[in-house]
């Protein structure tokens, strides 16, 4: 049984005629100890999916119209509030994009970490445990830092605090929602190294959400690519990066600069990401797709397994040239 099993998730915002569908028939699994990369442009529904795992999307306005989210076999969408609180932070922890605004500015970082300990491991809610966690995430002189306020730290340090806070409860699944987007490139690499290291040492599952294909190859076992509320391609990380099958994935790859290649022109994807609620008919990518056929605008393609453990939502998939 996988640790996380999302089945056919449908999520809408608003009601009646104004309702817009943000997530449409999404299915994903994460096994114990596995790292899944979830890739897509902003507004494709990946963050809402991540928050949905512990039902953190404010509802209303959000509404789950169908589907299940099984965590360790139990459906999160049917859980009572009190049970949810035991899942949040305990089984699933989060790291967010902006560490600066995700840490509460008026409390010391030590006490924010300790708060997590008190909730989930009250017997360990001590300064020494906080210091151990800070050491674990590589913060120098942790004894001095626990008295700091978030604004006294750099962005990279703040993100390490967030990670320490997430690890405090020894979660089985760590959801990292764009953990490096707001950081400098050198700091990005450090944080990714830290995550990879922690993954091996603590043997937890990670859901890594990013819009940057470059960083998933480093750390993910499998990758799911999302477009306009749907998964369009799902494959082992190495395969997907070497041989993307869906035209959207191919286009994404072509827009990323690569080292050690002839410096050709980077290709951008024409058009813009459709706004939530204004998804095109048929295949959602067809208005921007270089390989679009006439019937793409009519028929909604299915996610099909084209090779062992490789899924693509496009009947005209091909081994793209890179």
């Amino acid at each position: 049984m996988p640790l996380l099993d999302i089945q056919d998730l449908h999520l809408e915002f608003g009601t009646g005629a104004d309702a817009v569908r943000a997530v449409d028939g999404l299915s994903l699994t994460i096994a114990e100890g596995e790292t899944l990369g979830l890739v897509g442009e902003s507004g494709c529904g990946k963050s809402v999916t991540a928050l949905s795992i512990t039902r953190l999307v404010p509802a209303p306005p959000a509404r789950y119209t169908s589907g299940r989210i099984l965590l360790d076999g139990k459906d999160v969408l049917k859980m009572e509030q009190s049970k949810l609180r035991h899942i949040r932070g305990k089984m699933v922890s989060y790291i967010f994009q902006e560490p600066g605004s995700s840490l509460n500015p008026v409390f010391r970082v030590g006490s924010q970490i300790k708060e997590s300990l008190q909730l989930h491991r009250p017997e360990m809610a001590t300064d020494s445990e906080v210091i151990r966690l800070l050491k674990l995430v590589g913060i120098p002189a942790p004894e001095l830092r626990i008295k700091d306020y978030p604004h006294q730290m750099s962005g990279g340090m703040q993100q390490r605090i967030m990670i320490a806070m997430a690890l405090a409860s020894e979660p089985r699944l760590l959801v990292a929602d764009e953990p490096t987007t707001a950081l400098d490139v050198t700091i990005q690499a450090q944080i990714l190294d830290l995550l990879r290291d922690l993954k091996q040492r603590l043997r937890m599952s990670i859901l890594l959400i990013t819009h940057n294909l470059g960083i998933v190859g480093d750390i993910a076992d499998r990758v799911a690519v999302m477009y306009a509320g749907q998964v369009v391609e799902l494959a082992p990380a190495r395969d997907l990066l070497q041989r993307p099958l869906h035209p959207y994935t191919q286009a994404l790859m072509n827009s990323v600069p690569k080292l050690g290649r002839e410096a050709g022109r980077l290709q951008s994807i024409p058009g813009t990401v459709p706004a939530v609620g204004a998804f095109p008919s048929g295949c959602r990518f067809h208005p921007r797709c270089p390989k679009a056929q006439p019937d793409c605008s009519k028929k909604v393609p299915e996610l099909i397994e084209v090779e062992p453990s490789r899924f693509v939502r496009c009947p005209y998939w091909s081994h793209g040239k890179l």
């Binding site: 928050l51 512990t54 953190l56 609180r85 035991h86 899942i87 949040r88 932070g89 305990k90 922890s93 989060y94 967010f96 902006e98 605004s101 995700s102 840490l103 509460n104 500015p105 708060e115 997590s116 909730l119 989930h120 967030m162 806070m165 409860s169």
Partner: peptide, 12 residues
């Protein structure tokens, strides 16, 4: 604010 989401995600 985002730190409120963080607080909820902690299980508070």
């Amino acid at each position: 604010a985002e730190y409120v989401t963080t607080a909820r995600a902690k299980g508070l």
